[in-house]
C-alpha cells in the first residue's frame, strides 16, 4: 500500500505542478521589467500602472462585470426554477432543453445565436445579446447544482410541512428555499465565473464599441503581447479567487455538492 501511495503522490504532485506552474509564470512576469516574457530583468509595477491608465481595458472590465452580474442573476433565477421543476415534476422536454447547451461545444451555441440575433430579432449585437447568450448556457449549470442538492434531501420534511397546513408557496419559501440556498449561491457563483471567463460565445455575439474583457485579452494576445496581459490576468485571478474563497466560507459543502 505504501509503495503505491508514493506513486500516487508523485503523479498527483506532477499534475498539480502542471496546473499551477503556468499560472505562476504569468503572475511572476507581470512584475518583470521587460517587454518580453523571456528573461527576468527586474521588479516593476509599471504594467499595472499602464493597465490602470488603459481606459479601454477598464471599460472592458466594467462591461464584463455588468454582463456577468446580469447573466448570473438571470441564469440563477431561471436555473433554480428549472432545477426545481425537473426534480419535482416528471418533465420530458425541459431537461433536454436545460442540459443540452451545457453538453454542446460552445461554438455551436455561438453560431446559432449569432444567426438568430441577426435574422430573427434584428437585434444590434451588444451587451444585451451577450447577456442573453451567457444566460442560455449558464441555466443548465445552475439547474444541475440545484437538482443535485434536492436529490440529496429528505422528502419527509416537505410532507411534514404540508401536514402542518403550509401552502405550496409557504412550503417553498420557508422550507425549500432555505434548504437549497447553498446550491443557489453556488450556481450563481459558477455562472458568474463562467460568464466572465467565456470567450467563444462572446466572440460570436459581441457588438461594436463596447470592449469586453475576453475579447480585449484575445486581441492583446494575438496582436501585441506585452506584460500588461499578465497584469490583467493576475488581477482577474485575484477577483475569482476571492469569490471562490467567499463561496467556500459561505458553505463549506458547496464544492462537494457541485461536483456530484
Amino acid at each position: 500500500m505504501r509503495r503505491s501511495n508514493i506513486w500516487l503522490w508523485s503523479a498527483a504532485a506532477l499534475a498539480y505542478a502542471f496546473l499551477y506552474i503556468p499560472l505562476l509564470i504569468v503572475v511572476v512576469y507581470s512584475f518583470n521589467d521587460s517587454k518580453l516574457n523571456a528573461e527576468w530583468v527586474g521588479f516593476t509595477l509599471s504594467w499595472y500602472v499602464a493597465l490602470f491608465n488603459n481606459q479601454e481595458m477598464l471599460t472592458a472590465a466594467r462591461n464584463s462585470l455588468i454582463i456577468a452580474v446580469s447573466a448570473s442573476f438571470l441564469a440563477t433565477l431561471l436555473g433554480t426554477m428549472a432545477g426545481l421543476a425537473i426534480h419535482r415534476y416528471k418533465l420530458k422536454f425541459l431537461p433536454v432543453l436545460v442540459f443540452t447547451p451545457v453538453a454542446m461545444p460552445e461554438i455551436l451555441l455561438g453560431v446559432a445565436l449569432l444567426l438568430f440575433f441577426l435574422q430573427v430579432l434584428n437585434l444590434t449585437l451588444g451587451m444585451v445579446s451577450i447577456i442573453i447568450a451567457h444566460t442560455t448556457f449558464c441555466i443548465g449549470f445552475v439547474a444541475i447544482i440545484v437538482r443535485a442538492r434536492l436529490q440529496g434531501m429528505d422528502e419527509s420534511i416537505f410532507e411534514a410541512a404540508r401536514d402542518l397546513g403550509a401552502s405550496p408557496w409557504q412550503t417553498f419559501r420557508l422550507i425549500t428555499l432555505p434548504l437549497i440556498m447553498p446550491a443557489v449561491v453556488a450556481g450563481a457563483l459558477m455562472s458568474f465565473t463562467l460568464s466572465i471567463d467565456d470567450f467563444v460565445i462572446t466572440f460570436f455575439t459581441k457588438g461594436v464599441g463596447e470592449p469586453i474583457l475576453p475579447i480585449q485579452i484575445y486581441t492583446m494576445i494575438k496582436v501585441a503581447v506585452t506584460p500588461e496581459v499578465n497584469a490583467i490576468s493576475t488581477l482577474l485571478m485575484l477577483l475569482t479567487l476571492t469569490l471562490i474563497i467567499i463561496a467556500a466560507k459561505l458553505d463549506s459543502g458547496i464544492l462537494r455538492r457541485e461536483t456530484k
Binding site: P214, S233, L236, L243
Partner: peptide
C-alpha cells in the same frame, strides 16, 4: 479562477 485565454497564453 483564471481566464480561459490566460491559461492558453
Amino acid at each position: 479562477a483564471s481566464n480561459f485565454l490566460i491559461r492558453i497564453y
